[in-house]
Design a binder for these strands. Structure first.
Lengths: 198, 198
DNA sequence: GCCCTTAAGCAAACATCTGTGCTTACGATG
DNA sequence: CATCGTAAGCACAGATGTTTGCTTAAGGGC
């Protein structure tokens, strides 16, 4: 018999490699035993040669950034409800929902891990983070266009994003009910920066 | 003069090693050239043999946790101002101060994101977080004893702790002035959980 | 002042990560 | 169907991080 079946594909196509590597990153991030998340480990888990990863992505941080960007773009529908409160609540609901899953929590960790880590890259890191906030910026722009007065980004950072990220990173479950509304309510009713309100 | 200085010691004492290593961690975190912060690098910069570090701390994560814990205990006297607002503001001021310097931010970041490479790293991180929550709990208890009604811990988590950690992890500078007061003000004037206030 | 425990220092083995030259399957293009 | 460029896989080498056995200085207790 011819042992060679027609799809006896020895070598993965570039797209297969990309997909397998991405999945391996997610798997290893959510591995319970504290996986190492090194490039050789990712390669082995993906069934890919590690040189393929080195040559395509170059570094672990770049790979993580790619995975994170891909996932976030895929999972951020960005509802348009017609009001600032509605949009923010929808955003918060999506965030809370994703934080409830282990995979969502680990994705947030991956975002943080993909940040440039050296001291002199503080500004680059902030910019990298800004890009992650694209959807929030869109919500603010739409609100402004409608004549609403959205809180400054910093305040949204403190009161909406920070609680979600902290809980994701440290694995603290959000309250069972009403949490998105609670966060948005606090955000929209609280005092902004010193001097802006009151 | 006795040419033989009393400290003509070839070998550093355990306390000297500890101190030198801690300082080296701080130095390397703020090094401009994107320091690697590996154990050999730390050892070299501290003028200590790397085996001493491996044997005493065992892992890079444990060492970082030790450094950050030491720093926090040294810089967090836990003031007793007599009012809930005063205590919280003092706590926030210490927190803001510690993340205003690049080393402080990177230290917090390193601990928060340290991979659970060993299973006990999970508990290491949890313990670090517990410690921070502990001082908050003390503040709450004292307030309750005075007849005040402090916000629930979860709310303090969301509105006081979370913004500080987020900024530390992503390298976002806190507002130049009035930030501790702003955070505490938001915390004490906002609605708590659904049903607790209003 | 002597002894004894502790831990620093040294060297070498060991494991792991990172990078390079090369071959060749794969898919596209004509 | 033939050819070509791309990138996956392989093998190996170099660098870096981790661990172990041993020796011995340092400091404390008797």
């Amino acid at each position: 018999m011819t042992s060679k079946q027609p799809t006896a594909r020895i070598r993965k196509s570039p797209e297969q490699v990309r997909s397998a590597v991405h999945q391996a990153v997610i798997d290893l991030l959510s591995a319970p035993d504290g996986a190492e998340l090194t490039i050789p480990a990712i390669a082995q888990h993906a069934g890919v040669n590690h040189t393929s990863i080195y040559r395509r992505w170059g570094s672990r941080e770049a790979l993580l950034a790619d995975v994170v960007t891909t996932r976030l773009e895929r999972d951020s529908p960005l509802a348009d409800t017609g009001t600032l409160r509605g949009d923010l609540t929808a955003w918060a609901e999506a965030g809370v929902a994703s934080i409830r899953t282990p995979e969502g929590r680990l994705l947030v960790r991956a975002v943080a891990l993909s940040m440039p880590s050296s001291a002199d890259m503080q500004t680059e890191r902030a910019q990298h983070f800004r890009r992650r906030l694209h959807s929030i910026e869109r919500i603010r722009e739409r609100a402004t266009a409608r004549g609403e007065h959205p809180p400054p980004l910093e305040q949204i950072l403190d009161q909406l994003i920070a609680p979600l990220y902290l809980r994701a990173i440290f694995g603290i479950d959000p309250p069972a009910t009403g949490y998105p509304e609670l966060l948005v309510d606090r955000l929209l009713t609280s005092t902004g920066a010193p001097g802006t309100a009151r």
